[in-house]
Amino acid sequence: MADTQHLKYLVTQVRRDIVRQVHAVSSGHPGGSLGCTEFLVTLYNEVMDHDPSFQMDGVNEDLFFLSNGHISPVFYSVLARAGYFPVEELSTFRKLNTRLQGHPTTHEDLPGVRIASGSLGQGMSVAIGAAATKKLNGDDKMVYTLHGDGELQEGQIWEAAMYAAANKVDNLIATVDVNGQQIDGSTDQVLALGDLSNKFKAFGWDVVTIEKGNDVDAIIDGINDAKTLSGKEKPVCILLHTEMGNGVDFMMGSHAWHGIAPNDEQLADALSQNPETLGDY
């Protein structure tokens, strides 16, 4: 049984990191970051075999690619708290000369980042390439990705999805953050995604649905199911149903907090809902 209490402490602390980062620069994307906090904390601390001393090539390590790069606040916090770089560096988020750019980049040599992302739809292709190289190298570790559901409106995702199934890329687990929200409104209002499970199945993928995508135990079970399905000549997709803004009550239930920062009062409110657990940066 996993030490989920420690993961839950981490989740609370990462939520604090997220709202403090975006508050400090009055910009950034807290909604999707909070929605994916439990998933990324679990992935980096319970699932992946990875080395925070960080080598770009990641040989004999599990790899993760963040395709929806705008949720950089959660990515940076999780990386820092996993030991990739000092947590104090979170205070430089989005500031001039920072390694913690608005969207993740390799350009500033931030440990833990292997590809730039921000312009949506590209991460699945990159992950397929990395997965192909792993096979050529006889490296049996996994490649994970995370995508927004709105991001699936990009055509390149479906080019990649078609390729992965046709070429039996079975060392890839692609997770979609199904929060039903995007900048202009709900995904149904903007461009309805239809039946995602059947879409991925029709493309030749195995699909695991995690209904409680903000529940650490449910996430562990779901990823374990996905890992069981891997290595069987099909790529695996996790449909992770989350609540945008999870853990901060006034950020939940709408698309409003996709890309805006809390003011001083809202920050205090958000922090009061998430008491310090492992120490603020």
Partner: peptide, 26 residues
């Protein structure tokens, strides 16, 4: 054949894959 990747008429995916393949030394 193991080092040749036919990606079909999907150039965007090809460029992304190529970027990913460098990770691990190709």
């Amino acid at each position: 054949p193991d080092r040749f990747f036919q990606v079909g008429i999907a150039e965007a995916n090809m460029m992304g894959m190529a970027a990913g393949m460098t990770i691990g030394g190709k």
